[in-house]
């Protein structure tokens, strides 16, 4: 059952920002994550500020430079089905299509997908864990089959988004508006690892709104893809996933990024894999070296060491596939 709150539906961004004058005032985009968090009482709430009346947060348009501007309220379904995104940035369309279930994709937004809270069952449950201001990470010695193998430090969540790895891989940026005016942040720097701050997942302040996502024009020779493994074929988060956005010069990887989902508390850029493949042809030897590199620095917990062979497998599978495109 939901706690009590008041509800406003402002017509403009300025008005919305003015309503965010307390950390207990929560932004409502699609609500698919927010309502669950409120029902589970993961955090408190005083006022719900709906963004649904703000037209400028919607839509997907091409920019003058040949990139893309995606309104934060664009739904995951719109992203997954947009011909523009499917042809120019398949990794993003695939990430959106792999998220959640059809009903949730109809309702959930891209902005919300980036701002969602971790799915750790201790965090979501009635446990006063470290991330909620307690003094214990229950996952460390508890039930941690679905937790991180990279980047964990005192807290071992995995970042739940399927679109964020795609956006990091594509070098996207987000526009943020707040009381202090607008700012632009690379998606790669939007997420906050536990090593930096245990109590937050993004750089967003309570009185700021993520307004749009900007994709740079697709570079020459860009090939991209997203692969996700999960315990259930729909309505499930990644056990392991990999987003590739690679620039090919001939058969050689000239640049690009490899970003993991289901691996770390933030979308995890695998510099180790990138180093192996950069400047190389994706032949069997390189792919095999890349598959080893992806978990080189991994530190599995008691129950999630299966993620090591799993990440190796999907990196191998996806690099082999993208080499043949």
């Amino acid at each position: 059952m939901l706690p009590n709150f008041s509800y406003v539906r402002p017509k403009s961004l300025d008005e919305a920002v003015r309503h965010l004058d307390s950390p207990e005032n929560r932004i409502h985009a699609g609500g698919t994550d927010l309502l669950g968090c409120l029902r589970e009482r993961v955090f408190g709430v005083a006022k719900i500020v709906s963004l649904s009346g703000i037209q400028e947060l919607k839509g997907i348009t091409e920019t003058a430079e040949g990139g893309l501007r995606i309104g934060a309220l664009a739904t995951l379904r719109e992203i997954a089905e947009s011909p523009l995104i499917r042809s120019k940035y398949p990794v993003l369309a695939q990430g959106a299509a792999e998220a959640a279930s059809p009903q949730l994709r109809n309702q959930g937004t891209l902005g919300g997908n980036l701002c969602q809270k971790p799915r750790c069952w201790y965090y979501r449950g009635d446990f006063h864990c470290l991330r909620k201001g307690g003094d214990l990470c229950y996952a460390m010695v508890g039930e941690n089959a679905f937790h991180c193998i990279l980047g964990g430090d005192a807290c071992y969540i995995v970042h739940p988004s399927d679109t964020a790895p795609a956006l990091v891989a594509l070098g996207a940026t987000v526009r943020i508006t707040g009381a202090g005016g607008p700012r632009t942040v690379p998606v790669e720097e939007f997420f906050v690892p536990p090593t930096q701050d245990l109590t937050r997942e993004t750089v967003l302040e309570h009185n700021e709104i993520l307004t749009e996502i900007l994709l740079p024009p697709p570079p020459q020779g860009l090939r991209s893809s997203y692969r996700k493994v999960r315990a259930r074929r729909s309505w499930d988060f990644a056990l392991a996933g990999v987003a590739l956005a690679l620039q090919f010069r001939g058969e050689e990887v000239a640049g690009g990024r490899v970003v993991l989902s289901g691996a770390a508390p933030i979308p995890w850029r695998s510099v180790e894999v990138e180093e192996v493949i950069l400047g190389k042809r994706l032949d069997a030897e390189t792919i095999s070296a890349a598959a080893e590199a992806v978990v080189k620095n991994a530190e599995p917990l008691a129950q999630n060491d299966y993620k090591l062979p799993l990440f190796r497998a999907i990196v191998e599978e996806e690099l082999s596939a993208i080499a043949k495109v």
């Binding site: 279930s101 799915r119 069952w121 201790y122 449950g125 009635d126 446990f127 229950y138 010695v141 508890g142 039930e143 315990a231 259930r232 074929r233 729909s234 309505w235 499930d236």
Partner: peptide
């Protein structure tokens, strides 16, 4: 069913996301 066997003994997957029923795709 997943229980927090060694710490609190409480059930961890008491909802339809964490307790995974097969979907139409399964």
């Amino acid at each position: 069913r997943v229980l927090d066997r060694d710490q609190t003994g409480r059930m961890l997957n008491r909802n339809w996301h964490d307790y995974k029923l097969p979907t139409a795709l399964d």
